[in-house]
Amino acid sequence: MNYKYITIEGNIGAGKTTLANKLAAHFNAKLILEEFADNPFLPKFYEKPQQYAFPLELFFMAERYKQLKDMLQMQDMFSDLVVSDYLFIKSLLFAKINLKEEEYNLYQKLFDIINPQLVQPDLLIFLNAPVPKLQQNIKHRNRSYEQQIADEYLVSVHDMYMQYIRQHPVRTLMLDMTKVDFVKNPADFDKLLQALDKEYEPGIHYL
């Protein structure tokens, strides 16, 4: 396979970590999973979003940067495949949704300083799922602080991702998660593996 750094993205509950684990296991790749559970502000944010949004997003950005920097520095670019379940840009996208304008402007300045220091993925796999599917998955994984996530918030997250992907020349493989199930249907996973053997130009490609 020609891709050495694959990132899986999607809305909350889209199935990013599940697919990242399956791909990493199949290819014996290095796996980078977001350590969201370590963020002490996450449960507080869902209770009082305006009060805790800024420390929440700062913590996420710092942790994502450190994790990606450490892991990618150890990567042998000629032999190692790396699979991650998040883009660093998601820090800025979620900040745009969650922060007040003056907070976001400060946050963006910090982001712009550190983002150029990171290696960008060769391929983005985006898991596109409708809100009812996301809510079903969120309910099933049963993280207490996620159970009250509003449909409107998930729509905002989706729209922000779509805006970013359309405006930037990211080599993106778009998957319709209403039509695939990588856990229950091995044939769906086989189709994805076949798709990863192909060369893609920058832009959106639908599987």
Rank of each mutant, 00 (worst) to 15 (best):
H26Q: 07
H26C: 02
H26S: 03
H26W: 07
H26G: 02
N28M: 08
A29T: 12
K30T: 15
K30H: 14
K30W: 07
L31N: 04
I32G: 03
I32D: 01
L33V: 15
L33S: 00
L33M: 00
L33D: 00
L33T: 15
F36E: 10
A37D: 12
A37V: 11
A37P: 00
D38C: 08
N39F: 06
N39P: 09
N39K: 05
P40I: 12
F41T: 01
L42T: 02
P43K: 08
K44V: 14
K44E: 15
Y46L: 07
Y46N: 08
Y46M: 09
K48L: 13
K48Q: 15
K48C: 08
Q50P: 04
Q50H: 10
Q50G: 13
Q50V: 14
Q51F: 14
Q51W: 12
Y52K: 10
Y52H: 15
Y52R: 10
F54W: 07
L56I: 00
L58H: 05
L58A: 02
F60I: 12
F60P: 10
F60V: 13
M61V: 04
M61G: 03
E63S: 15
E63T: 14
E63R: 14
E63L: 00
E63M: 06
E63P: 04
R64M: 03
Y65N: 01
Y65H: 08
Y65V: 06
K66H: 11
Q67T: 13
L68S: 05
K69A: 14
M71C: 13
M71A: 15
M71T: 08
Q73M: 05
Q73N: 12
M74H: 09
M74Y: 01
Q75W: 01
Q75Y: 01
F78W: 00
D80L: 05
L81P: 04
L81G: 03
L81C: 06
L81V: 11
V82Q: 01
V83M: 05
V83N: 01
V83A: 05
S84C: 11
S84D: 06
S84V: 09
D85T: 09
Y86V: 09
Y86L: 09
L87T: 11
F88L: 08
F88Q: 12
F88C: 08
F88G: 05
F88I: 09
K90I: 09
K90Y: 10
K90D: 11
S91N: 10
S91G: 06
S91F: 01
L92H: 02
L92K: 01
L93T: 03
L93Y: 02
L93G: 04
L93V: 06
A95W: 02
A95V: 00
A95H: 02
K96G: 03
I97C: 07
I97H: 06
N98T: 12
N98H: 14
L99D: 01
L99T: 03
L99W: 03
K100H: 11
K100M: 13
E101F: 10
E102H: 12
E102S: 12
E103A: 14
E103I: 08
E103T: 10
E103V: 10
Y104S: 09
Y104W: 06
Y104L: 15
Y104I: 13
N105Q: 15
L106V: 13
Y107F: 15
Y107Q: 05
Y107M: 06
Q108K: 15
Q108M: 09
Q108N: 10
K109R: 11
L110F: 08
D112G: 04
I113F: 13
I114L: 14
I114C: 11
I114Q: 07
P116Q: 10
Q117S: 14
Q117G: 06
L118K: 04
L118V: 00
